[in-house]
């Protein structure tokens, strides 16, 4: 890998680290991070495919309140680097995903470490506030952000230093049953993210919509956009009906508005 590529990879890793805490631009999402690393190393297609596959697994990972989800940023960046170093191109995606999961867990510790290290930072801010010193508060905020960027950039740089032959040797030494088994596990592990989301959202009221979505998805002609449109429509119809049911009755059988269809429909309320 050329020196320029390496610098760009570390830069992407830095953005991903910042994104992981800020959760604004989404540079830490595998779809974006893996694609960018693929782009700067000349493995665009493999990067996109890895990003897409990892994104599916990470869909439901979200930081809620003070709870921290598995670290998508480190998983995405490190597995993309390993994919590139392994030199297998698109074929290496399955293995890269398998490596990504333990990395997402390892990333958790780094996240917690960084969030603890940020405690003294806000104490410095307190001191600066006492003096009414804007500059110092801004400085410490930026230090905090940089620290979060380094959380991913440093491990990425370390991975780059490891010679690619070592990475390749390690990947090739993995037996086929382990590889295939990991790939199978990767297909199932998606369920954990979905389960997390459902546990947060499910109420008795919305379960039927889950069932409808599940059954309709078996119709393979329906694209995701089509499913989305169906979902919005069902939601709007339901909420509208619910609203009418709430204040219905009062206007039932009222005026004859010269709208025969409307009158007939009203009779059914």
């Amino acid at each position: 890998m050329s020196a320029i590529s390496m610098i760009l990879v570390v830069l992407v890793a830095f953005l991903a680290g910042m994104g992981g805490i800020l959760d604004e631009f989404q540079f830490h999402q595998p779809l974006v991070a893996c694609t960018l690393i693929g782009l700067v190393t000349g493995n665009l297609e493999a990067g996109i495919i890895l990003g897409g596959s990892l994104q599916m697994i990470a869909l439901g990972w979200a930081n809620i309140g003070a709870a921290v989800a598995p670290d998508a940023a480190l998983a995405a960046v490190a597995s993309a680097i390993i994919l590139v170093q392994g030199g297998q191109g698109v074929k290496g995606v399955g293995t890269a995903i398998a490596v990504a999961i333990p990395l997402a867990v390892a990333g958790l510790f780094l996240t917690m470490l960084a969030r603890t290290l940020a405690v003294p930072i806000v104490h410095f801010m307190d001191a600066a506030a006492e003096e009414g010193n804007f500059r110092k508060i801004e400085f410490w905020q930026i230090v905090g952000i940089i620290m979060q960027g380094l959380r991913i950039a440093l491990p990425a740089a370390a991975l780059l230093v490891i010679p690619s032959s070592a990475v390749r040797g390690f990947l090739e030494s993995m037996p086929a049953w382990l590889n295939d088994g990991m790939t199978i596990g990767g297909g199932m592990v998606v369920a954990v993210g979905y389960a997390m989301v459902i546990n947060m959202m499910a109420t008795r009221e919305v379960w039927p919509f889950f069932a409808i979505g599940f059954v309709l998805a078996a119709v393979s002609d329906l694209t995701l956009i089509a499913l989305g449109a169906l979902g919005v429509s069902f939601g709007l119809i339901y909420l509208e009906l619910k609203k009418n049911a709430g204040n219905g009755g009062g206007n039932g059988g009222s005026s004859n508005t010269g709208d025969p269809l409307g009158d007939i429909l009203n009779d059914y309320e």
Binding site: F209, G213, A217, G231, V232, Y238, L239
Partner: peptide, 17 residues
Amino acid sequence: SIMGMFVLGGLIERWVT
């Protein structure tokens, strides 16, 4: 939440293999 549950149902069918 209606949208979310609907789409989640679909995602589970499609992507959990």
